[in-house]
Design a protein around this nucleic acid. Structure first.
Lengths: 203, 203
DNA sequence: GCGCATATAATGTCTAGACATTAATCGCGA
DNA sequence: TCGCGATTAATGTCTAGACATTATATGCGC
């Protein structure tokens, strides 16, 4: 306040912005210190696939490959983080751009959290878009890895078996209850993720 | 203010938080509206590789593969975003975890922005860690893709040729001037990125 | 009807003061 | 020296008012 001749509120807002960017850490009584390890963070935008393809001025299409209502199995592994038990809607489908395969997805929807999904027809509408508008989430976790396409996947995507694909796994929760788990697979040459980072105050 | 009986500043702060989370858009005169496409964003942490490996309680090691000072070539393509011209330090190296290859990196350091890098010995110290502490950046851009390992890369990483790898490209700038461009390659089964998202106010 | 100056309604930002919260520190007694 | 309560120094949050900024809306003259 003395150095810049401004009010405490103004200094507070500025420092709060620095803290939210991870540049400083604030501790009561101890004061505000420059953060030790400047962890590199970036804001990642995971786009809606339909919107992404529309932006490339190509025709988007979703094709449902399988649909099943079943209890959540313990051996579902990663999917089990969704809910301890209960019925789920398991879907697999393909995203097409201009008639060509663009990506595959395998999804589990928790029917306890999103019961309306049970009677929904996902043969042409992508479940991701529907969920986005009808079962909003409050928390999400993403895992991004590179995997080799398995035989079936490779055939459906029109790539060589073992071809490098970007795999995005996403778990979403609403108020602590699992909503959906999705595993998406994109051929490496057809999709990439871009993340930007600029600290606050940068113009 | 009328609805919650509080001051304008308080409402402003709350709405600012919503806006920064992308839930609403603010327009002067037009007012604040619920954001149309709830773009899925997540905060991605790009860890320091040495710290990441240390966290797995394995021994980290960096091995320099090549070092060259040369003018930035126009045909550098993606790298050219760094600076229009001028000398760069081009490095390639390998990250090892417990003696085993963990990842490869190919890096360009802009000597106009980070001149101290010229005389620095990177044979054992990873340039990424050094830059993090000596040439801080203010803006960064990341691109995440899945690629197939080329013959040389596959040999150095100890994976099959054509094996799926996660490729991270990062451009960093300080006050508009390019600092470094790095392309990192990790075998898909040895590395993944995790991104979390919780909107403000979630406890 | 069109173009332009003006009004207006929203956001953006700051001030000065008040009170709340919390964790480190100090001081005192055992 | 140890333990514990009181103090204090920092952050956290809110208020009520002021002025700045800017895109839209309005009204007027041609």
């Amino acid at each position: 306040m003395a150095e810049y001749g401004c009010a405490r509120m103004t200094v507070h807002k500025a420092i709060t912005a620095l803290a939210s960017a991870g540049l400083v850490t604030r501790n009561k009584r101890a004061g505000t210190l420059v953060a030790k390890p400047p962890v590199v963070t970036a804001v990642l935008e995971i786009p809606d696939i339909a919107a992404l393809i529309a932006a490339r001025s190509e025709v988007y299409e979703f094709r449902l490959l399988s649909r099943e209502i079943r209890p959540l199995r313990a051996e579902d592994g990663a999917e089990a983080a969704l809910a301890p038990h209960g019925e789920v809607l398991a879907l697999t489908g393909a995203h097409l751009a201009g008639g060509e395969p663009f990506g595959l997805e395998s999804r589990i929807i928790n029917l306890a959290t999103a019961p309306e999904a049970r009677d929904r027809d996902f043969t042409v509408e992508a479940p991701g878009s529907w969920l986005l508008h009808h079962a909003p989430w409050t928390d999400a976790r993403h895992r991004i890895t590179a995997v080799a396409a398995e035989a079936t996947q490779a055939r459906r995507l029109g790539v060589a078996r073992g071809g490098a694909c970007l795999q995005i796994e996403r778990w979403t929760w609403r108020a602590g209850a699992g909503v959906t788990f999705v595993r998406q697979l994109f051929p490496g040459d057809r999709y990439d993720l871009v993340a930007e980072f600029s600290p606050p105050g940068a113009t």
